[in-house]
């Protein structure tokens, strides 16, 4: 079981039922990585299958979406390999909409 919060910012909430913040309890045995989280989000939380490509491209977060792990750029935390711990906040911010 891993307890975490995910945030969808910069307009990404549109794909996730127009809700920006979710507190999740995800059952898991052993390490739960960002890769596992992405699979979970795609499987359980995107209602319209057409919307998946807004969020995911080639098995990772689409370029132009900023991923932060506890407010730090995921590039510094190991990206897909990062192991999520209880209390972590993972946020996804789209930069693709107009300015």
């Amino acid at each position: 079981m891993v307890k975490l919060r995910v945030e969808f910012l910069g307009g990404l909430d549109v794909v996730f039922n127009k809700q920006r913040t979710y507190d999740l309890d995800i059952p898991s045995s052993g390490a739960f990585t960002i890769k596992d989280l992405l699979d979970y989000l795609v499987d359980k939380m995107i209602d319209n299958p057409k919307d998946v490509e807004v969020f995911i491209e080639d098995g990772t977060v689409r370029p132009g979406i900023i991923t932060l792990i506890n407010d730090a750029d995921w590039e510094l935390e190991g990206e897909l390999e990062y192991e999520i711990e209880d209390g972590d906040v993972i946020s996804f911010t789209s930069t693709l909409h107009g300015g």
């Binding site: 911010t93 789209s94 930069t95 107009g98």
Partner: peptide, 18 residues
């Protein structure tokens, strides 16, 4: 990317819908 992060860290109030 830095503009978005700046807005995020400074908690600026902006509108983001296509």
């Amino acid at each position: 990317k830095e503009i978005v992060l700046y807005a995020h860290y400074k908690k600026l109030d902006y509108f983001s819908t296509e």
